[in-house]
Design a protein around this nucleic acid. Structure first.
Lengths: 243, 243
DNA sequence: CGGTGCTTTGAGCATACTCAACATCAGTGG
DNA sequence: CCACTGATGTTGAGTATGCTCAAAGCACCG
């Protein structure tokens, strides 16, 4: 069973999580993966699993957006990431999930039983490597986020967040200046380590500065992406202090 | 070459990065890995690689402690982790390193050329899985750190940090109450998203509260680990407000 | 001993938080 | 269709936590 190696190459679905090099997996494994897959739908606000649950499955996001978060005993919340189509959720070696996964919008998932998926790691060349690649991309994103959370100001955080959304939109083939924000202001704050009030205030300030424009609650138009990029890295333009 | 599978099992060196289940790899791969390995020594303050360098190798820490950090253009720094013996450094899919790795103490590393290591992933069963396990552990740690950076107070950050060091000491078989802090106060601050002054102040406060005791600059004794655990999760005891 | 680098402590301040009021939107039912 | 309601978002005023700037203490090392 370890022989079945040199067959045609088929690209797996690409990751959202940025810089992952295009990877491939041989065909038969694709089938063996498919044999494990079970589709699952969630309505907005439903959870796929809770932090602390037995981690018996991995999920691939096919449609919609999930938020992944951790809680402190007193209810403070940190969203560790948003999962867009192409993301894998629940990766991590532990036997319990390290975070809760809750649907922001209606969501479609593919569920892979963990034990059976992992038993394929050693049999299906490229599979472990593929998962590794996704995990490594997620790790790189997490490290960027640590820099953001630990060292950036509120303005820099919001600007960085909008820019990342813009890059993702571009990767998806959408207009990089027309952002959709499916998550609430509270969610954005909990992702960036801010309160909802600060999140609102900074967004309003960016509007006043003419850097962005709000088109309804969940839609933002970037009017000056270059200035936004400057703001994201602390190159506070003089106009930043005006107002 | 895909046949050489069922030989005796040998545990690879365990990870510091916590909850990784003990994993094993078959013997021949161990040899193949060893064939790639090159030892390297660093004196304190030397760097193994810089953020942005071509990522042509992975490193396993054998002795000493490294700090891994990212910089903003204006010099603000976020340490994303400390690498103790057993840690692998430089994991991440990118073709450039995502952070700088600098020796805190004198350090001994094993260097694995990345391309050649990765070419073994599909040939050596268990290898990719092993690296995946390490990466996943690092990801879980990173997510904990996001919660800390985004949502914890200075006191909670310091308390959490000391507790994690204590757990690591225990895993290493050392006394869980006798912590060695090889890194400077500045490093601790840059790891926790604090300034050096706040770091000092909180440590002093913990001393005054009788929770810890400082035995020289780089050594701390935990006198009340239970209270420290309470402080780490925001269960601010009344004594916390009494200076 | 005197330097240099790291740490500690103090005083004042700024950023982001808390609390509170109000505005807006989406969904519901009259 | 509009009025009502609850949820979500926005804005303001005051405050607190942690930062900045500054000085002094301490330890290690020639």
């Amino acid at each position: 069973m370890l022989q079945a190696v040199h067959s045609t190459q088929v690209p797996l679905r690409g990751p959202i999580a940025a810089k992952a090099a295009p990877q491939t997996v041989t065909v038969p494994p694709r089938d063996r993966l498919a044999a494990l897959a079970v589709h699952r739908r969630l309505r907005a606000k439903e959870t796929a699993f809770y932090e602390g649950d037995a981690a018996d499955a991995l999920f691939e996001v096919v449609g919609g957006v999930l938020k992944l978060y951790k809680l402190l005993p007193d209810g403070r919340r940190q969203i560790t990431g948003f999962a867009y189509p192409g993301s894998w959720v629940g990766i991590g070696l532990c036997d319990t999930y390290a975070y809760t996964a809750e649907a922001v919008t209606d969501v479609t998932l593919i569920r892979y039983p963990r034990a059976r998926l992992e038993s394929l790691y050693d049999e299906v060349p490229g599979l472990a490597r593929r998962i590794l690649s996704l995990t490594a991309a997620e790790l790189a994103t997490a490290q960027d986020q640590m820099l953001l959370l630990g060292r950036k100001s509120a303005m820099e955080k919001i600007a960085s967040f909008l820019l990342r959304l813009s890059e993702q939109a571009e990767e998806r083939g959408d207009d990089a200046c027309e952002l959709s924000l499916p998550m609430s202001r509270t969610d954005i704050g909990d992702y960036l380590g801010l309160t909802i009030e600060t999140t609102c205030r900074v967004l309003s300030q960016l509007c006043r500065m003419g850097v962005i424009e709000m088109c309804g609650r969940n839609r933002i138009r970037l009017r000056d992406p270059d200035q936004l990029a400057d703001l994201a890295e602390g190159e506070a333009l003089s106009s930043a202090s005006m107002l």
